[in-house]
Each structure stands twice: as structure tokens, then as C-alpha cells.
Nucleic acid binder design. Structure first.
Lengths: 161, 161
DNA sequence: TTGGCTAAGTCTGTCAAGCAGACTTATCCT
DNA sequence: AGGATAAGTCTGCTTGACAGACTTAGCCAA
């Protein structure tokens, strides 16, 4: 193949964590759905109206996210209406916050809009802006270039090509 | 619509930062490509072999990421070969590190594999594991539930439905 | 100077997914 | 009984994914 072979070439992507996470999140509309839930929009018609997602696709994505444990259906009833269901984040869903905040942060930096950020993550207690930072277990906060993604204990060797 | 209307319903998603970021990242294969570059795999055939992405799709994604400023083509030459190009992350691309690390972190927590994590972000200087944390400007490190995504100064009102 | 080697693509036909818009369902109230 | 509403399902069209074959451009050896 090539003389300078990256170490990663020795390993399989079969059980890669990013792959497995993307099996769940890995499509444009799924992120739209998650955004709606994170900003507090929980109902089918509200999500659809705001995000423009096609009905069939919304149905599919909600079902998939429930099956994967990211959302749950929660009953509600408006006065004079029958009982219906809305969608809420589970703890697993809430723990996607860093992913969403990291995406917002990147977008604010590299795709700025006139007028400033349209959405902002804030700490409920103190009202300050929330961001994500990289931190190692020794307490350093490395720049991206100082971080390497290496094979871990669960890495599998790739089949001979 | 409903009695209890989430505030977010008043605002448009048209210029939403997450939408705009997903315009660039928003598909399964794009994340596969980014992962390869983050682990140091930079060449067309290497990326394709490891990730299984169809050629045509890989061509398309690489071109899109270059156009969006996330990657650049970089010439290289193996002995006895003609000059070719490999793909490298720009600064904008590197700054996606928190997004990738956040995804790995979530996957490790909620989709664990036997044998432990197959990939690990580590600090090059000290070798320790790197994670992402949420932090507000006052220095607190809030739990996900203590963070709210609110309308910012650039938020647009939605057209009357 | 021709012919083989290689990485990095392009091309072609098939098939699954996305999509818009119309229709259906299940209750509640009058 | 009839109308209202949220949350879907159904139908047919179109776009994109995909596998596999083919092409390109330079380098080298004979």
C-alpha cells in the first residue's frame, strides 16, 4: 500500500465507537429531532412544523431513537383533548448535551451569522454561557492538536487485506 | 396548537447553528471520513479500505468537506510513484475534536463493548485520557439537566403559521 | 517507446430511501 | 351525530446510495 502506514491501518473499524454512535445519531434529521427536544419542543406536530422534517421520516426517527433508548414517549392531555403522547429525552438522551454544545460551538466559530448566535447554551443556575472544553485526567486542557485518538484495549485487528 | 407552548416555538430554525453545522457534517459517511482523518488515515484507498465507504460517496464527501474548509488536499509522493494527494484536516477540521470526543464519550458510556473502548482520545504530552466537560463562563461545570438551549441575539421569529 | 503497475478516481445500472400531499384514526366536545 | 384536532399511515415520484467495472496519469523496467 504505502511506505508510511498509519498505525490505525492495522485496526478494524468494525466496533469503532464513532461508528456505533453514528448508527444511532447518524443522519441529518436525527440531529434536527434532537435539537427540537433539547430546546423543549416535544410534540410531533410542533417538531414537524419547526424543523420541516417529512412526516414519515419523523415517525421513523422517533421510533428508532426510542428503540435505542435516547427518547421515551410520555403521555399528556390538553384540556378538551384526548390523551396523546409527546417525546422526551432519557438520561442517555440528555447526556448527548456535550455533542450538541460542541456542534453549536463549532458552528458559532466557523459559520457565524450576522446578528450573533441564534441559539445559546446557558447554565440555568447562573445564566452564563456554557461551552465544552477538552480536558485530560491530569487536569490539562489540551489544544486539539495535542490530542491523539489511539487504539484502546478493545481495538480489534483488521482482517488481512 | 397547544396551551403549553414552548418558547422555542416562536423562533425559526432557518438559521439555527445546529442546522448549519449539520449541513456540513450531517451524514453518516462524513463522520466516518472525519474519524479516519482524526486517527491519521489520510489517503483515498486507505480511507475506503478501512471504512467501507463506496468510492463515489467518498469522492463526494471529500469534495464537500474541502469546499467547506474542513479539509485540504496535500501533495505527497511515495518512492517510485507519481505525485498524488492526501487529505488533511484544516484548523477548522481540527476544531471538530470536541464533537468527536463527545461522541466517543457517549458511545463508551451507552454502547460499551466487551474488551473496553476500541479507541481512546489521549493527551499527547502526558498520555492521559481526554474527555469533554461542559463549563459555564462563571466556572461551574453543570450537569446536562442544568443546561438550557435558549434563543440568542441572532434568533429570528418564525413566520406566522 | 511500449507495456505493466499503482492510487485515485469516474461511469453505469439497480435498488432503497427520502419526500409531498392526500388520506385515516382515535378520541373529545357540542 | 357531527366537527375538531394531533398524530400518524399510504401512495407514487424522485433522489441518492451502492457495487462493480472501467479509466486516468505518471513512474519504472525492459
Amino acid at each position: 500500500m504505502s511506505t508510511r502506514v498509519p498505525e490505525a491501518m492495522a485496526f478494524s473499524t468494525q466496533n469503532c465507537t464513532i461508528s456505533r454512535t453514528m448508527e444511532i445519531l447518524g443522519d441529518k434529521w436525527t440531529f434536527h429531532v434532537l435539537r427540537e427536544l433539547f430546546v423543549g419542543v416535544r410534540r410531533f406536530e410542533d417538531i414537524r412544523t419547526r424543523s420541516g422534517i417529512p412526516r414519515q421520516v419523523l415517525t421513523d426517527r422517533l421510533a428508532a431513537l426510542i428503540e435505542r433508548g435516547v427518547l421515551r414517549r410520555h403521555p399528556y392531555r390538553e384540556p378538551g383533548q384526548r390523551e396523546r403522547y409527546e417525546y422526551r429525552l432519557t438520561q442517555a438522551g440528555l447526556d448527548l448535551y456535550p455533542v450538541l454544545v460542541a456542534m453549536i460551538q463549532w458552528g458559532d466559530q466557523y459559520l457565524p451569522t450576522e446578528g450573533g448566535p441564534p441559539i445559546e447554551p446557558r447554565h440555568r443556575d447562573c445564566g452564563e454561557h456554557v461551552s465544552v472544553v477538552l480536558r485530560c485526567e491530569a487536569g490539562h486542557e489540551p489544544e486539539p492538536r495535542q490530542v491523539a485518538i489511539l487504539a484502546g484495549p478493545g481495538a480489534l485487528l483488521r482482517e488481512a487485506s
